[in-house]
Amino acid sequence: MSEPKKKKTIKRIIIDVDKCNGCQGCEVICSAFHATPQYSSNNPERSRIRVIRDPLADIYIPVYAGEYTAAECAGRDKYMIDGKEYEECAFCRASCPSRDAFKEPDSGLPLKCDMCESDPTLDEPMCVQWCLAGALVFDVREEEVEEEEQEPEELDLGIEALANRHGWETVLAAVSRLSKKDD
């Protein structure tokens, strides 16, 4: 019989853009929660969730801050949905050089949503607690993760392929030369 499967906790915020009515309460409470000392100030510019608002276009999209990226994508996307024209990269979570979103206004350092990680743990992130409109709904589920067999990693396979073609000596010399160049 197989070993008991590993479990991974998936935290999720379900964003119902049809229910958002643009109050920015999520931004207020996010920035207040993350202020030091906690709640001593608020400023939506520091929030890790931003509502992209364009009232005349009927656009209200809460977007969470994701990973920092040093370089912007090679190209940009622009969505059109039901006749609504969303701004460039509207749905992207990255703190990215291409835009101002998700950066500390003073330092420019990237902001990232941490799901209000704190001690003691909150039942729900603050933005969800403050969204009485129900546009933000929190759920947690556990996913079983397959114990993967020790399959050769992609890199191993690649290097093996190179050695088969050029011989180990040549490949090692090339690696050594290139790694010195990087210093």
Binding site: N21, G22, C23, V28, D58, W130, L132, A133
Partner: peptide
Amino acid sequence: LSCYNCPMKCGAAISVDSRLC
């Protein structure tokens, strides 16, 4: 629609032509 930082929805977007609001 709400005003800033308010959970009430006392306003509304009204669409009278092809524009969304």
